[in-house]
Design a protein around this nucleic acid. Structure first.
Lengths: 242, 242
DNA sequence: AATTCTGTTGCGGGTTCCCGCAACTGGACT
DNA sequence: AGTCCAGTTGCGGGAACCCGCAACAGAATT
């Protein structure tokens, strides 16, 4: 069995290689790639069936790399290993994971034992394994209170690009007023609303649009990697076409 | 000599303690704190004269912790050790470093040798030492092209809070129109401007306000920690007073 | 079939935003 | 003094934004 490790932090990579050798004696070959692009190329070159993938990397983040790998070989087993229990990352992953393929998500704060367990469960046994911490986040995301449904999320991303309501409406094939309704529920769910007890908030209310974006970043609903991807996507799709 | 290490990533902390013991044999006591708040308390308790500080930590970030420590003991020598060459962090640091106190900034990507060198230079010799990578950023920040002048930065932070022009004007003691001028230069420096070749950008231009905020996050001019601090500050100052 | 609910859409108005134009200030250089 | 220049401020208008109100459709419930 051949395992590919994609991780740009040298200390984490060393630790990971160590645990990997320890936990999975049946591994015949371990390759280490130091960024997403290299990981993609290496996965193709070595025909990796199992990958351990960091999410936050300089050149090309783990989600984009995983999507590319899965596009070629949907059966590849990928264990994501990350610092952050970031909603934006989670949303990104659940969006790209193919049907019937094994994957996992372990936080870097997990113990060595739990990491070993996850490595075996996902890479060898082909199970799905998600860190309990993450799973809690997934619950919360699915709960009605602060949940962002997919269409709301799409509007949020367009908002982050700075698009105005009309353009969002066109891109999402909705009417202007509907987009504005989505924005209203976004504001509510992100906790963007004037405090009735604060006179300043009432007389000159805050700009909800930027406030919402700000809160989306702070709460981890949105992150920089997501926005960058969206921007690239917009440059390609939104402008050359149409 | 007593050294305090404030670092919440266990692997990095272990590595750091190892290098520290190796590089500085004259150290009599090494204490490790796992987050900013604990670091602050520990610095006070052990009368630390030298600190190695991570920037990005869960509970309380390194900048706030450093400010608290320096407020009590301005002579404390602090070496910041961080993953990111983030403009927002750099700006935060240069804002709080006292006159005549030693500090340093080393990236986690630096070699073991360079880290040892920095440890000795800052903690023992009391020099100022900034990673070349960071220094380049500082240059760029100081260069006229993309530089954000302090007052512009203040306006950017207020914008991130969602304040409208009028309120920013009040907080900064400026006229409305001047704030708008600051915003104009912000837009320019953050690269927020319609592309004349793109018909979509011309007919329905993007919302500059949110676009600028978005770019500020992507370029690292602003980060989540900064916005959170600003929000706390606003809740306290902007509303109870006035 | 009647009804409630949820999501979508149009309309209209009050507000903020973006920014061109013009005037004024204070400092720097000739 | 004269002149230039960068920074600040007022004015005004067109566009976008926020959102209450109301109508309508389809799905679910009774």
């Amino acid at each position: 069995m051949k395992v590919l490790v994609v991780e740009d932090d040298q200390y984490h990579a060393r630790y990971l290689l160590d645990v990997l050798a320890d936990a999975l004696p049946e591994v015949s070959e371990i390759v280490h790639a130091a960024d997403g692009a290299a990981g993609e190329a290496e996965a193709e070159a070595m025909c990796a069936t199992a990958v351990v993938m960091d999410l936050q990397m300089e050149k090309r983040n783990g989600i984009e790399a995983a999507r590319a790998i899965w596009a070629r070989r949907p059966a590849t087993r990928i264990l994501f290993w990350s610092n952050y229990s970031d909603e934006a990352y989670l949303r990104g992953i659940s969006r790209i994971v193919p049907e019937d393929s094994a994957y996992g998500y372990v936080l870097k704060t997990a113990s060595r034992e739990r990491l070993k367990l996850a490595l075996r469960a996902v890479l060898v046994e082909g199970q799905i394994m998600v860190d309990r911490e993450i799973h809690r986040l997934q619950r919360r995301t699915a709960s009605p209170r602060h949940a962002l449904d997919d269409s709301e999320y799409a509007v949020l991303v367009d908002l982050a690009l700075g698009l105005q309501d009309k353009q969002i409406a066109i891109r999402q094939s909705l009417s202007l007023r509907t987009v504005q309704n989505r924005l209203l529920s976004l504001y509510e769910k992100l906790g963007v609303e004037a405090d009735p007890d604060d006179p300043a908030d009432v007389t000159t209310p805050r700009n909800k649009r930027v406030w919402a974006l700000s809160r989306a970043f702070v709460t981890g609903t949105l992150n920089v990697a997501t926005v960058q991807s969206a921007e690239r996507d917009y440059q390609r799709r939104g402008r050359t076409r149409r």
